[in-house]
Computed example of a mutant assay.
Amino acid sequence: MSSNYQLNPGKWRGKWYSLFALSLITGVVFQQTAMVWAQSAPAKPAPDVIVFTNGDQLTGTLERATGDSFVFKSDVVGEITVTADKIKELHTGGKFVALKNGEKVTRTSKTPAGITYQDSVITLADESSSRVVDTVPVKDLAVLIDGATYSKEVTGNPGIFQDWTGGVSGGVTLIESTQIGRTFTAAVNLIRLVPSVEFLPARTRDTINLLETYGKLTQPVIPQTTPPTPDSVAKTNIFHADAEHDKYLTPRLFGLVGLSYDHNYAQGLNLQQIYGAGIGYTVFKTPVQEFDVKADLHYERQNFVPPSVSTDLIGSSFTELYHRVLPRKILFTESGTFIPSWNDPSIYSAIFEAGLQMPTYKRLSVSLSLQDNYLSNPAFGYKDNSFQFVTGVTYSLK
């Protein structure tokens, strides 16, 4: 049996030559491209260097400085704080902004520049022209901020959903016996500072707080009657919500606008609404504690269950707030508010709150809180005081 198909050696040899040439050309192109990429790739910046007064050196990254304390991060020793009297020289490739003591921070006041430190003086220079922009003696330095942080915290304007901190809490109590009970508690406490870093003076502060306690207890009639008597049901429903926006006029004095809503079934209060504006003052503030006082003038509307009549009031809120970080990062908070009315002095209310938040695992904490609400004019047949003690679990947002 014969075949009409015959191999053509010259034809196949030409194909192999073509494939070889194509492979050679492709390899050359890849090699040249890799060389171009390697040449165009930015060189890794040199590490920052601290030269100590004793001659030792430490490489790493300068993060910031507050007063005469420089925060430096190194792969060898981690983050450390070095005082200026121990530094002979400091060289960094980053761009920074230096704010002097008493200098007012504005959104257009500074441009980040390269820095060097020598002889107790910080020198800021334009990297493109090497022109000295400013010199700041370390004794006059308030804060040294890296360019990225300055752009975000000072010149930037965060969106409404950015930079919120705080926590979300919840708890539940269940009873399954002759009585059947359910109690649920939930709380949301949010705060946003602009700027969000502690070493810059605050421009604005926003707070949002929500608290809901709902409970239902079913109790059968014992002994049961004939015909049967329906079970008795007791309900608890306490809701509070408030929001406030603060605008700082000075590092301690701020103006405020706020609103709050309250519903308290235990006092026959269907809804209390407050809308007002006022001023506040930070009495003292340290890294571990802060104490603020506030006062406002507001409109207040109280709506009660019938037959009690609703009221329209012009009043004020006088508030004090305190928080402190205890050992082991336990957070203690306390606040008290007295709310008199000016058009009817016989009507007033007061709120006292206190709480502990104890970290347990990562962002989870065990929380204990109490709240006491007093209302001088509760609905007919209801008590004037409502007290809550709540335990739960809190998840911190940051």
Rank of each mutant, 00 (worst) to 15 (best):
F184I: 06
F184P: 02
F184G: 00
T185A: 07
T185N: 11
A186E: 10
A186V: 07
A186N: 07
A187W: 02
A187E: 09
V188G: 00
V188R: 02
V188T: 09
N189R: 14
N189E: 15
L190W: 02
L190M: 09
L190N: 07
I191T: 15
I191E: 15
I191L: 07
I191H: 08
R192F: 00
L193F: 14
L193N: 15
L193T: 11
L193Q: 11
V194L: 01
P195W: 04
P195V: 11
P195K: 08
P195H: 10
P195T: 12
V197A: 02
V197L: 02
V197K: 06
V197T: 13
V197G: 02
V197R: 09
E198D: 15
E198N: 14
F199V: 13
L200Q: 09
L200E: 11
L200M: 09
L200Y: 04
L200G: 12
L200A: 10
P201F: 09
P201T: 13
P201Y: 13
P201G: 10
A202F: 11
R203V: 10
R203G: 05
R203L: 08
R203Q: 11
R203S: 08
R203D: 05
T204D: 10
T204W: 09
R205N: 05
R205M: 07
R205H: 08
D206K: 03
D206G: 00
D206L: 03
D206N: 01
T207Y: 00
T207G: 03
I208N: 01
I208V: 15
N209Q: 12
N209K: 07
N209W: 01
N209T: 12
L210Q: 04
L210G: 07
L210M: 10
L210T: 12
L211K: 04
E212T: 14
E212A: 15
E212D: 13
T213I: 15
Y214W: 12
Y214H: 13
